[in-house]
Design a protein around this nucleic acid. Structure first.
Length: 660
RNA sequence: GCCCCAGUAGCUCAGUUGGAUAGAGCGCGGCUUUCCUAAAGCUGAGGUCACAGAUUCGAAUUCUGUCUGGGGUACCA
């Protein structure tokens, strides 16, 4: 039910008498919205005030004319004027009830018809590096991308999901090097992926150790420079004590110095710490300039070296299995998994073409595309001849264009890469890929509790699987709390408990990620997301279970589904009306959520719906009313609430249980 | 230095792209269980929407400047 479009369509002919240009008319129609002031109106048209200048009449007079002409008698009980010229609408309970019956008679799609002109979307999400262990940072892209894909499909679009696996980059050079020099054969035979991630960490640690050691002189220089700058600024500021700008500069310079010193100190501490690890130091001595050795292994792989290729081929399936086990548990599937390696053969041609068309030029030995508005170019081929992820991204976009010809291409990636994508999109437009809407669906970095980004490089890796386990066990503790089980009178089998804990625990993690969606960063706090109260998946799942429980009890009392499933719905009390209106808004809400691809619009809607239902069933009985007609109407409303909650959660990739 | 993002209740965050008296959750105070699951409901306190200007019928939302925090910034992804 697209309620908003329906109401706007009724206003269009009335407003068209003043607004002849389609754009102006559209802008005015967009000022007809669901009212925030639910005590005043269900919908409101904020159109009279902006028209006063154009028409030269007071807004109240314009509003009056609108009210007298607009045709709404079938769907509204009242259309009134309030305040400075708001047109307030109250929907008719009978009309609303009919729409609810339409929805309820179509449990699968809730009477939502697939969009008339579907678009083709390619959605790029998750995209982990298969060589690195998957960690919490990966889950946001995965969960958000999956939700967007599901919602678009439900609305009737063609949404093609592609997991752009990082299976060809420098990290494989690290693993290959590690395998050749530090491997433990027994461990590899027993658990190849665990051994590979160990090797990755071993190489990573040596790299960062050597990096720190090499950087010390640079950092010392930086401190020196900062110190000079501070002294200069201080002298200037002392000479002119009234000059605020100079004193501010002095403060800034002093802060800069403190910061440089901190960085140097930390680096020194890091080295000192590492020096205690004799194995690390020894390995570092035996493998000097490890960074270059690793790059060499990578470049050997890329140029077709038989041994490295063989190793790569033996590693990748293991790594993929590991990643797929996580997807299986999260119940996430992709249409495609073309990894970076898939595009490798295409890269030389891409660079050649860019050069031939003078889009790219050589600079400092690298092949670059210079773009307006950016200091640094986009580099598509390094000095040493190697290609970069920007090159692969161009190849990928061109491949998708040939293969799918999408109307829109969505990249669900951390916001720290926004500049990369802006450049990429600029380059793609230069190449001529203009009909596709390219969009970076950016989201805030997943931060640790220390407020710093989760990085594999920083050492402390929180594996995804163990994190999911933690969430599930947290859910178990709450669901199977003996006090609660006794109060609710449930006796779950162990198997049921496990199922409930899994669904509630995973739902908690997904929901926490989805409901916080904004460009701002997101602090990953396991305790909070597993907390099963407030704005969480568990609350919504709980309300769903209660709708089921009522229906079950009705059945036990002899009011069979067949009796009430086509009985008339009547909305008589306040709570029924607000709940009914909320349910009817499901489709409008889904469309709204996809304007800027914001899953948190959906989580908010579901939370509101669950609360409205909680409030309704707390105040009013469904069963044992002594009035069969009202009972049957409320059973339908209850069922429709459950169906809506379930569908909404399903679109977010979150499951429900019948009892909890 | 330059570019991007953010700053809303004690804490965590919404705020439908400019609408009426700025809202939730958690936490804090109070009330409700002979009743379909109290993981609930109801209710109270708590706000200079970082600051200063501008735009207009109307600004948390748009623009300009300032402050604070985060991120990015030539061969990692």
């Amino acid at each position: 039910m697209q309620l908003l479009s329906l109401i706007r369509a009724r206003f269009a002919p009335v407003l068209a008498q003043w607004l002849t240009e389609p754009e102006a008319l559209n802008a005015a129609l967009e000022r007809i919205v669901a009212s925030r002031e639910s005590h005043l109106a269900d919908y409101q048209a904020n159109v009279a005030m902006p028209l006063q200048k154009k028409i030269g009449k007071p807004p109240l007079a314009i509003a009056e004319e609108i009210v007298s002409k607009v045709q709404l008698s079938d769907i509204c009980t009242s259309v009134t004027i309030a305040g400075q010229g708001y047109v307030n609408m109250r929907l008719s309970a009978e009309w609303l009830a009919e729409r609810l019956m339409d929805s309820h008679s179509d449990p699968e799609r809730l009477a939502i018809v697939p969009i008339a002109k579907p678009k083709t979307y390619v959605i790029d999400y998750s995209s982990p590096n298969v060589a690195k262990p998957m960690h919490v940072g990966h889950i946001r892209s995965t969960v958000i991308g999956d939700a967007i894909t599901k919602i678009l499909r439900f609305l009737g679009h063609k949404a093609i999901s592609d997991n752009h696996l990082g299976d060809w980059g420098t990290q494989f050079g690290m693993i290959i090097y590690g395998y050749k020099n530090f491997r433990d054969d027994a461990a590899f035979a027993q658990a190849p992926v665990a051994e590979l991630s160990r090797l990755y960490r071993v190489v990573q640690r040596i790299l960062s150790y050597q990096d720190a050691v090499t950087n010390i002189p640079k950092l010392e220089q930086a401190v020196q420079r900062a110190s000079e700058k501070r002294n200069e600024a201080k002298a200037k500021s002392v000479a002119a004590p009234q000059d605020k700008k100079l004193s501010k500069e002095a403060t800034n310079a002093a802060n800069q110095l403190t910061e440089s010193k901190d960085v140097l100190e930390k680096s020194r501490q890091n080295i000192e710490e590492s020096n205690k690890d004799s194995e690390l130091v020894q390995r570092s001595q035996e493998h000097p300039q490890l960074g270059q050795r690793v790059l060499k292994e990578t470049s050997k792989l890329h140029s077709g070296d038989a041994e490295n290729l063989r190793l790569w081929e033996s590693f990748v399936p293991n790594c993929k299995d590991e990643i797929h086990s996580v997807y299986a548990r999260l119940n996430i599937q992709f249409d495609h998994e073309f990894g970076e390696s898939y595009y490798h053969d295409l890269l030389p041609q891409i660079v050649e073409d860019l050069l031939a068309r003078s889009i790219a030029v050589e600079s400092d030995g690298a092949i670059c595309v210079f773009l307006d508005g950016y200091e640094a170019p986009m580099i598509v081929q390094k000095q040493d001849g190697a290609f970069l992820y920007s090159t692969t991204d161009i190849a990928t976009a061109m491949f998708r264009e040939r293969e799918f010809a999408p109307d829109a291409s969505l990249y669900v990636v951390d916001h720290r890469q926004s500049e990369h994508f802006q450049k990429l999109f600029d380059v793609l437009r230069k190449i001529g890929l203009t009909h596709t809407e390219l969009k970076h669906i950016e989201f805030g970095t997943v931060l640790g509790e220390d407020g710093k980004p989760f990085k594999t490089r920083s050492g402390a890796v929180v594996g995804l699987n163990s994190m999911l386990d933690e969430a599930v066990s947290g859910a178990w503790d709450v669901v199977c709390n003996p006090d609660r089980l006794q109060k609710s009178g449930h006796a779950f089998t162990e198997n049921e408990k496990r199922q409930i804990a899994e669904i509630v625990g995973l739902g908690a993690i997904k929901y926490a990620d989805l409901s916080h969606n904004r460009t701002s960063n997101y602090v990953f706090d396991m305790k909070k997301m597993v907390q099963l109260q407030g704005n969480t998946a568990a609350y919504i799942q709980y309300m769903y279970a209660r709708t089921r429980s009522i229906l079950k009890k009705a059945d036990a009392e002899g009011i069979a589904t067949s009796k009430w499933q086509s009985a008339p719905i009547a909305l008589s009390v306040e709570h029924e009306l607000s709940l009914g209106l909320q349910l009817i808004r499901f489709e409008d809400m889904l469309n709204q959520s996809m304007v800027e691809y914001l899953p948190n619009v959906v989580t908010e809607y579901l939370f509101d719906t669950a609360r409205l239902f909680a409030s309704f069933y707390d105040q009013h009985k469904v069963l044992d009313l002594g009035e069969l007609a009202t009972t049957m109407s409320r059973l339908r409303l209850t069922d429709l609430t459950g169906l809506t909650l379930r569908k909404g959660l399903e679109l977010l990739g979150i499951g429900v249980v019948e009892r909890m």
